[in-house]
């Protein structure tokens, strides 16, 4: 292994083995599905301004579906509450819908399946691997919770939504619909930051919006309402190729499920459920499981050792 600053070929990239054994489509399908999801959501919002089809109005911050169902970003609503404004019922109701949706599907599923910035940071992450850039400024992963605290505290002190001045998530989504202006500089900044300064720096360490959905996912997991999880149920097949760790935006979540003695389900709320680990694993260790399928999973596997552990933990 050289010490960086070379360009990896496709064959050397993590996931190459999966392409060989499973075929190209199966080795990329969840990434493709996520891009389709992200682009379709963006497209739905753009249908109005571009094609005059107003199925959904507004943007991710707050929107109106088919002129009836309001949707409001709960993190944004919290910021306005912190600023001392009690919104009218439309926004409260909209935030409840969104809260319920992400609580059921797993909080940070927003980050990997909806958030437009994810495309930018995923690309930076991919390029970082491709260019074999190893140098990274280590940030604490808890930094995002401090950011979240700041984003909610400062409006209380000043009365205005400071985070929304620069929030790249709402800025990019809004910008694509209403015009970016100079907003692209901020997005470029995040791309370069993730590429050259800190590996997965933005989404994995700093973004308070991710931190909010992280907490939501954590609460949903503890109260047992979250439905979908990634499950390393065939972990006995793992051949330690490390490809999943290389592509995972939050690699710390894999180890307990893959190498631990407990449940093979990735329950850490840091997990964005992007499914890249499923894609790149040539051994097909990982699977998406619904909450209900998890119970079947214990019987359908050949590894009795973990099955008992899993049952014991349940």
């Amino acid at each position: 292994m050289s010490k960086g600053n070379r360009v990896l070929t496709g064959e050397q990239m993590p996931g190459a083995e999966a392409v060989r054994t499973k075929g190209w489509f199966l080795a990329w399908r969840w990434l493709l599905a996520r891009r389709v999801s992200q682009i379709s959501i963006m497209g739905l919002f753009l249908l109005g301004p571009l094609a005059d089809l107003w199925w959904i109005k507004g943007n991710l911050s707050s929107s109106l579906v088919l002129n009836t169902v309001p949707l409001t970003d709960p993190f944004l609503l919290l910021q306005t509450l912190a600023a001392g404004h009690l919104p009218v019922t439309t926004a409260l109701l909209g935030a409840l819908f969104v809260l319920g949706f992400y609580a059921m599907l797993g909080g940070r599923i927003f980050c990997s399946w909806v958030c437009p910035v994810n495309v930018v940071t995923d690309t930076a992450g991919w390029l970082r691997r491709r260019l074999d850039i190893r140098k990274t400024s280590k940030l604490s992963r808890s930094m995002r919770f401090w950011m979240l605290g700041m984003a909610l505290l400062v409006p209380g002190l000043t009365g205005y939504l400071v985070w929304e001045l620069v929030n790249p998530v709402s800025l990019l989504h809004r910008g694509l619909i209403f015009g970016m202006g100079m907003g692209w500089t901020l997005i470029l900044g995040i791309f370069l930051f993730d590429l050259f300064v800190s590996r997965r720096g933005w989404c994995g360490h700093l973004c308070p919006m991710g931190a909010f959905y992280n907490l939501l996912g954590s609460v949903a997991e503890k109260t047992g309402v979250s439905l979908i999880k990634v499950n390393a149920k065939d972990r006995s097949r793992c051949n330690d190729c490390m490809d999943c760790f290389a592509v995972c935006p939050e690699p710390q979540v894999i180890k307990p499920a893959l190498k631990g003695k407990g449940s093979p389900v990735i329950i850490a709320s840091d997990c964005t459920q992007c499914g890249r680990c499923i894609d790149v694993c040539a051994q097909e260790v990982f699977h998406y499981n619904t909450r209900f399928a998890q119970f079947d999973a214990t019987t359908s596997t050949g590894s009795s050792e973990y099955a008992t552990n899993y049952k014991a933990e349940k």
């Binding site: 507004g58 911050s61 109106l64 409001t72 970003d73 919104p87 409006p155």
Partner: peptide, 10 residues
């Protein structure tokens, strides 16, 4: 206004 507007563009 700056504390109440969620910048949704509706």
């Amino acid at each position: 206004f700056l504390g109440a507007c969620v910048r949704c563009g509706l």
